[in-house]
Simulated scan of single mutants.
Amino acid sequence: MSDTSPGPDEVRRVADLARVGLDDDEVERFTDQFADILDYFETLDEVPAVDREADLANVMRADEVRESLDQSEALANAPETEDGYFKGPNVS
Rank of each mutant, 00 (worst) to 15 (best):
S2Q: 09
D3Q: 15
D3L: 15
T4Y: 13
S5F: 05
P6M: 09
P8W: 02
P8H: 12
E10P: 03
E10A: 15
V11S: 01
R12P: 01
R13S: 05
R13W: 11
V14I: 07
A15N: 02
D16I: 03
D16L: 04
D16T: 10
L17V: 07
A18Y: 05
V20E: 03
V20D: 05
G21K: 00
D23T: 03
D24C: 08
D24M: 12
D25M: 05
E26M: 01
E26K: 03
V27I: 11
V27R: 00
R29T: 15
F30A: 03
T31Y: 09
D32I: 14
D32L: 15
D32V: 15
Q33F: 12
Q33M: 13
F34L: 15
F34G: 00
D36R: 09
D36W: 03
D36P: 08
I37M: 00
I37K: 11
I37D: 06
I37W: 05
L38N: 15
D39F: 00
D39V: 01
F41L: 07
F41K: 04
E42P: 08
E42D: 15
T43I: 14
T43E: 13
L44G: 06
E46T: 13
V47P: 10
V47Y: 13
P48T: 13
P48M: 00
A49I: 10
D51P: 12
R52Q: 06
E53G: 02
E53M: 05
A54H: 04
A54Q: 04
L56G: 03
N58Y: 04
M60S: 13
R61M: 06
R61C: 01
A62Q: 14
A62R: 06
D63L: 09
D63M: 01
V65D: 13
V65P: 08
V65A: 12
R66K: 07
R66C: 08
R66W: 12
E67I: 06
E67K: 03
E67H: 01
S68R: 14
L69Q: 10
D70W: 01
Q71G: 03
Q71W: 05
E73C: 00
A74W: 13
A74K: 05
A74L: 05
L75W: 05
L75T: 06
A76R: 09
A78K: 01
P79R: 07
P79V: 01
E80K: 03
E80N: 03
T81N: 07
E82W: 04
E82F: 09
D83L: 01
Y85R: 05
F86N: 12
F86W: 07
F86D: 13
K87N: 14
G88I: 04
G88Q: 07
P89N: 09
V91M: 15
S92H: 14
